[in-house]
Every structure is written in structure tokens, then in C-alpha cells.
Simulated assay, not measured.
Amino acid sequence: MELSLSRRVAVITGGETGIGAAITRTLAKAGATVIVGGILDKVGTDFAAGLTSEGLKVSFQKADVRKQSEVDALVDGAVARFGSIDVMVNNAGVFDGFADCLETTEALWDQIININLKGTFFGCQAALRHMVGKNSGRIINTSSVGGLRGAADGASYTASKFGVVGLTRQIAVTHSQYGITINAICPGVIQTDIRGNSAAILGADGPNMQKGVGSDPEAYKRLVPAKRKGLPEEVAAVALFLAADAGSYVSGQAIAIDGGWTAT
């Protein structure tokens, strides 16, 4: 089976930066029409314009995944404009700066859970409304190694990403019968600016994003057998497989993309 997404319509939340941007580019290069929904308006507009100038079919719509009405408008608008939604990638997420339980304020907890977990739920629900009726579809949720083990991240981020894995598995049990696959990708240490982007989105609710950086920028090598950081494009390659016909019998899985970290 090939990895072509020709004539497919994909919606990606948080698709304007980092891993989301790599998934956007990869799916678009595979032939998909991609609608990016994100909160970073200028970044998203410029990003989509750049890809359009390369001949790819990408557009941007400002959408805050904390608001169900905006997620619904993003998905329903894509269907109204292009006739269907074939792939939904719930990628919007923010980091908690490794804040432990005692350091996590109620405001930080609410922001992380609302964006990472509730936003993913809104995206799944909006997509399912359209996918169930046509008995086909792909939903890909971005979790994390922090959704598989407790020692990777802070309290709220870990809770949110474990929640994404649980939500993914529950939806797979109830909705795979409709020809829909629902999976989670779980990146490890990836080269992105998640700290800077999270600080911009969280604003005053954000913690010190420099916690854990320390004096040894290569400390992660003690955890990762591959001894290097992953590239966003390596995560996007797995998303493409799950979005394409090749991934048609993979559902309910939480797939680590982590250079062997979770094997240790």
C-alpha cells in the first residue's frame, strides 16, 4: 500500500510550529489538502503562505482548541469547503516546564489540561461526527513519552498526555467498527521550540520554562539509546503512515517515536 494522500482532506490543530508544522508539510507533500488550525495567527498565516508558494494545498485558520465552538468551526468549515474530512490530527499542545505537583498552580493545571486533553477531545468529537457517517477516517492524537511513563515531564503535562492515550484507546474501542482508525503518537526528545511556543501561549500562567535545561545540554543521551534528538520530520513520517491506507489496520495504539527511550 502506498502513502499517497491524494484527494484527502486533513485538519491539523497546532500545525503551524514544531512537530505540527512537520506533519502539515509531510501530509501536504503526500497530496493532502491541509487546513491548519492554530492560535499563533501570524506564524500560522505566514507558514501556510510559504507552503502555498511551493505549490502545496495548505490554508490556516485561527482556532483556540480550548473553545469547542472554534474547533467545531475549524472542522465543519473544512467539510463545507472541501466536502469531507479524512484525517484529523489533534496536535495542539503546550509544555508545563517540568513543574512538579507542588509547583503546579491551578491556573497552570487548567491551561495544560484544557489545551492538551480537552482540546484533543473536542477535535476527536468534531471529526467523528463526520467520519462515522461515511465509515472511514483517520484520527491521530499527539501524546508524548510523557504519556507512557511518569519520569519524563511535569505533573500537569504528564496527566494530560496519559489522558490523551486513554482517550485514544477508548475511542478506538468504540469507533473502529466504523472504518475509522484512532491512534496516538508519542514523541520523545525532539528538536522543537516547545518551550518558547508554550511560554507565548500560556503567558502569565506559564512556569519557568528553563527548568531542566541545566548545565549539560546533552544529558538526554543518558536516557535515549540513539544518543540524539529526533527530528520533527521523523515524527511526521509515522503520522503519514497512520494517515494513509498503509495504516488501515492499526488502531488504538500509542506509538513511541523516541530513539529507544521507552525500551530502557
Rank of each mutant, 00 (worst) to 15 (best):
F98T: 09
R66I: 13
L74H: 08
V58I: 10
V75R: 04
A80V: 00
K67E: 15
A63C: 15
S84P: 10
A107L: 06
D100R: 12
A63R: 10
A107S: 13
G50L: 06
Q68N: 13
K62T: 14
V58E: 03
T105G: 08
L51P: 01
A80F: 00
A48M: 05
A92N: 01
E106P: 10
Q68V: 13
V65M: 12
S84D: 15
A48C: 12
V87S: 07
L56C: 08
L74G: 03
I85P: 05
F98Q: 11
D100H: 09
S53N: 13
S69F: 07
D86H: 06
D96S: 10
F82Q: 12
L102N: 10
S59G: 07
M88R: 02
V58Q: 11
A63I: 11
A63M: 15
E54Y: 06
A92M: 11
V71K: 01
K57I: 02
A73N: 10
A73Q: 09
D86R: 01
E106S: 15
A107G: 00
E106K: 14
A49L: 11
S53R: 14
D96I: 02
V58T: 11
S69V: 14
V75L: 08
A92E: 04
E106C: 11
A78I: 09
V71G: 05
G93M: 04
A107Q: 10
L56W: 08
G97C: 08
G83F: 02
A107K: 12
K62D: 04
V58S: 02
V75E: 06
E103F: 00
T105F: 03
V79R: 06
A49M: 08
V75F: 08
I85F: 05
A73I: 08
G97N: 04
L56M: 15
E106R: 14
V87L: 11
D72A: 08
E54P: 11
A80E: 14
S84C: 10
F95W: 15
S53K: 15
E106D: 15
D72H: 00
K62Y: 14
E106M: 14
E54F: 07
L108I: 03
A48K: 08
S84E: 14
A80W: 00
G77T: 09
G77F: 07
G55V: 02
T52V: 10
N91Y: 01
V65N: 08
V94F: 03
V94Q: 05
E106F: 13
R66S: 13
